[in-house]
């Protein structure tokens, strides 16, 4: 039997459709499995109470606070450093050896497993700088970890700003800094924002680096130097040490829903911003 082009076309379409569905199904299965096992245990007191008996009972409120503090601080540190580095790389230097070294460096940094960042954070922030297992050690470590993501995504966004905008801005007599702030950053904002949201997601879901730097205290933190346990670490400890699978699934559900909500909000925000500048 001879295969006609039309038949092979139909076959390919069906095959691609199948592969795509498998990918989606696996994803939906994982999320569905966790939500099915976890949602039933989530209630108001689970979200607002401290945990008791190592997490066997009670809620996850201190972990929610810890996650917000560590992630928030990490992004507040990493975003300006990352964006300013990118501005330097794209607008203030000419392409050369230095820029390619910096670029190669950030790429390497992006490929390093997070536990190595954790080890570095432990040695440097926790031990050498005597910050101890703390919010600040965890946040600084995560900030270094997400820096390459922020730099790479902002660089793409800034490079996508048409050259003509820069020319016109100079042509009207603006300085380089005015050009950067009034034209380039304004048009690149949706892209930069996407990078920052990605980083928030990475910080929230990070476990290894946090365990080595922020510790795993169950208490409510009372200072930036207090140890906290983030949601993902809480989930890891609950399941790894067999403390409570119900609460582990419930914690994982909270994590998944949080990340989904952040992504949806970010998506909508970016779309509004993009509509403004396009």
């Amino acid at each position: 039997m001879k295969i006609t082009p039309a038949a092979s076309q139909r076959f390919v379409v069906a095959f691609l459709w199948l592969i795509t569905s498998i990918t989606l199904l696996v994803l939906l299965f994982i999320i569905g499995y966790i939500l099915v096992h976890g949602l039933g245990h989530i209630n108001w007191s689970f979200l607002t109470e401290s945990s008791r008996r190592m997490g066997r009972e009670g809620g996850i409120f201190p972990m929610i606070v810890g996650t917000i503090l560590v992630t928030g601080l990490a992004v507040i540190i990493a975003a300006p450093v990352g964006v300013l580095t990118t501005i330097y790389l794209t607008e203030y230097t000419r392409e050369g050896k230095l820029t390619s070294i910096i670029r190669f460096g950030t790429d390497c940094l992006a490929a390093i497993p997070s536990i190595i960042f954790g080890l570095f954070g432990f040695v440097f922030f926790v031990v050498v700088l005597r910050m101890g297992f703390s919010i600040i050690s965890g946040a600084l470590t995560l900030a270094i970890m997400v820096l390459p993501t922020i730099i790479r995504t902002s660089e793409e966004a800034i490079r996508a700003v048409p050259k003509s905008y820069r020319e016109v801005s100079y042509g009207l007599g603006s300085t380089r800094w005015q050009m950067v702030t009034k034209v380039v950053l304004k048009s690149a904002l949706p892209g930069i924002g996407t990078g920052i949201v990605l980083s928030i997601g990475r910080c929230i879901s990070e476990t290894a680096a946090v365990m080595l730097t922020a510790g795993s205290a169950l208490r409510m933190p009372d200072s930036p130097f207090a140890s906290v346990r983030t949601l993902s670490l809480h989930f890891y400890i609950l399941s790894r040490e067999g403390i409570s699978m119900e609460n582990a699934y419930a914690t994982a559900s909270v994590l998944i829903i949080t990340i989904l909500v952040i992504n949806v909000i970010a998506y909508l925000l970016m779309r509004r911003l993009a509509a403004k500048v396009r």
Partner: peptide, 15 residues
């Protein structure tokens, strides 16, 4: 550049 302005080939308003 304030006194000597330039109009380019392609219309290029800012977004």
């Amino acid at each position: 550049r304030r006194k000597v302005g330039m109009v380019f080939q392609r219309p290029n308003p800012f977004p």
